[in-house]
Design a protein around this nucleic acid. Structure first.
Length: 244
DNA sequence: GCGACAG
DNA sequence: ATCTTGTCGC
């Protein structure tokens, strides 16, 4: 990474304390761009992390797919030490650096990024998807499995039904029932896209499960790698009961 | 002060 | 997220 990019990276995500992180979020939220997304792109990416508590480590995975046919192109991973705790509202400071490291290993960079977390549906308007979007400067969509903030009307149990997610009087996202009878998805734009485009993108990524296919692939891979690390770890502890 | 709270 | 067995429902 060049000197210039490294400085930009530090400027966008380097913080030492939660207070500092919150201050940075408020500042960066003003740079988030909401606009229609052009679906005329060719590479979509999705990322997810798995953790290995015994090692205080994470496994970050980024998978890319051709668009719009969603054929898998590449899958890369990065293993590192957790540097920031999980604090509701500050998730991006924990996970974006990890996703970024994996992203750097891609041969072909994505045009659009689907994230496991909120976009602008965040207390300060800067969820993980928005933060990653600003860092990579590409359109990003937030697709969370649970609500962080805001309120919405009751949602029908049928597949495909949706309702707006509000924060005060403003619409910040959409709550979408991806499958009949399952917990809904919380979709919100990250950066360089808007609410309608975000929902449309997520729906085009839905297969037979609750979670969009690209995110499932990234999640499965990260989980598998983490599981292998844990197994190798427990095997060592059996053959090497002590170090002396 | 009392809840709520992405992964 | 992670720890965990069996088990309730489509």
């Amino acid at each position: 990474m060049g000197e210039w990019e490294w400085l930009r990276y530090r400027e966008l995500i380097e913080v030492k304390t939660p207070e500092e992180a919150i201050k940075l979020q408020k500042k960066l939220a003003n740079s988030v761009v909401l606009q229609p997304l052009s679906f005329d792109f060719s590479v979509l990416a999705a990322a997810d992390l798995a953790y290995v508590r015994e090692l205080d480590s994470y496994v970050a995975v980024v998978a890319t797919f051709s668009w719009p046919d969603l054929k898998q192109l590449e899958i890369v991973s990065h293993i590192g030490k957790v540097r920031f705790p999980y604090i509701p509202g500050l998730l991006s400071f924990r996970e974006v650096p990890a996703i970024f490291e994996a992203w750097r290993k891609l041969e072909r960079k994505p045009d659009v990024f689907l994230c496991d977390g909120q976009g602008i549906a965040h207390p300060r308007g800067l969820g993980l998807a928005s933060h990653l979007g600003l860092l990579l400067d590409i359109p990003t969509v937030g697709c969370a499995k649970a609500r962080l903030c805001g309120h919405h009307a009751e949602l029908g149990i049928e597949k495909g039904v949706r309702t707006f997610l509000y924060l005060d009087k403003k619409v910040i996202g959409v709550v979408l029932r991806s499958r009949a009878g399952v917990k809904p998805l919380y979709v919100s734009p990250g950066h360089k896209t808007d609410i309608e485009s975000s929902v449309r993108l997520v729906e085009k990524c839905l297969g037979r499960y609750r979670i969009p296919e690209p995110l499932r692939v990234a999640h499965r891979e990260a989980t598998q790698i983490a599981r292998r690390i844990k197994l190798d770890l427990s095997r060592e502890n059996q053959s090497l009961p002590s170090s002396s």
